[in-house]
């Protein structure tokens, strides 16, 4: 296995007596899509800013592409493209002029920069819009312009903070497709989000944050299996007494929860037939049965429920 492109050791950041990031150990391989997931205020953005050298860690150490963000921030920032959670551009300038300014800050030659800008804008489908002032852009277009900036820079690592925040479903789908195509180019991508379900489809590995700590880290499938004890969810609507107890006795059902109008079952396998039989045998009226997949949301809720109970 090659040397990880991003590694943190006991990375900690405190603001006064509040700990934003607590002894973080992270290691991300080249070409990976890594998700930092968790609710707002869990320490995702602080972690990202420390990786970029924009915030000084209180203690601990980070290394990005073999450089120390604290001592060699320029080397790090040359290799890393960053899209902040609320990305802004100079509204009075056109998309192209905005990118040209960034290119100059990166020290690119004018001709080289223009070539890269044209290519990058075509890639995110902003060729025409590039000539218009950014104030006419929609939110999705601004986000694509931010990706174009990362492409233009020739970054090998992209850090995207809440990239799908505030996007409509159509733009979100397009955006996720764009992220996949960046991955195909071999870019290492870190994305942070509180929309667990959306990110689950693009990430190779995820880390679930809570209160500055990583609660869980690993491949999405593995997390689903280890935390939920299986990745099958069955939802039924049924009437009758003692149903929950009856269902809990079905082999393979690990958990039954009452969600008001329906019951939600977590199973090791697709046990719809067994569940239906159990309902009927218990004398209940089965009106609906539906199989769905477990999602990271379930993992998150379940895991941190456990943590909260334990403490």
């Amino acid at each position: 296995m090659s040397e990880p492109v991003i590694r943190t050791e006991q990375l900690t950041k405190t603001y006064g007596n509040r700990t934003a990031v607590d002894r973080l150990d992270l290691s991300i391989e080249a070409g990976e899509v890594f998700g930092l997931l968790g609710p707002n205020g869990a320490g995702k953005t602080t972690t990202i800013l420390m990786l970029l050298g924009l915030t000084e860690p209180t203690s601990g150490h980070a290394s990005v592409a073999g450089f120390d963000p604290l001592r060699q921030p320029l080397e790090v920032k040359r290799r890393v493209g960053y899209m902040p959670d609320q990305v802004g551009f100079y509204d009075n300038l056109t998309g192209v002029s905005n990118l040209r300014y960034t290119a100059k800050l990166c020290g690119l030659e004018d001709r080289d920069a223009d070539e890269r800008i044209t290519k990058a804008l075509a890639r995110v489908r902003l060729t025409e819009a590039g000539q218009r002032p950014v104030r006419t852009y929609s939110r999705g277009m601004r986000q694509r312009l931010a990706i174009a900036e990362i492409l233009m820079k020739g970054a090998s690592i992209a850090i995207l903070d809440e990239p799908t925040g505030g996007l409509d479903p159509q733009s979100t789908r397009e955006f996720l497709e764009l992220i996949r195509s960046l991955k195909r180019d071999g870019m290492t991508i870190i994305l942070s989000s509180h929309m667990l379900e959306l990110v689950q489809v693009v990430c190779d590995r995820v880390a679930l944050f809570n209160a500055g700590k990583i609660g869980l880290m690993g491949r999405v499938d593995d997390l689903l299996r280890s935390v939920l004890g299986g990745s099958h969810i069955i939802r039924i609507e049924a009437k009758g007494a003692g149903l929950i107890e009856a269902l809990q006795r079905v082999p393979g059902v690990t958990r039954v929860s009452d969600e008001g109008t329906s019951l939600r079952l977590e199973c090791t396998d697709d046990l719809r037939a067994d569940v239906a039989r159990a309902v009927v045998q218990a004398g209940g009226d089965l009106t609906m049965i539906d199989a769905g997949h477990a999602s990271l949301d379930d993992v998150y809720t379940r895991y941190f429920e456990g943590v909260a109970h334990a403490s």
Binding site: L52, Y82, V87, K153
Partner: peptide, 14 residues
């Protein structure tokens, strides 16, 4: 206010 600060500071400048 324009949210450009973090994007500009993420470029290789101090």
């Amino acid at each position: 206010n324009r949210k450009t600060m973090s994007r500009i500071l993420a470029q290789p400048i101090y």
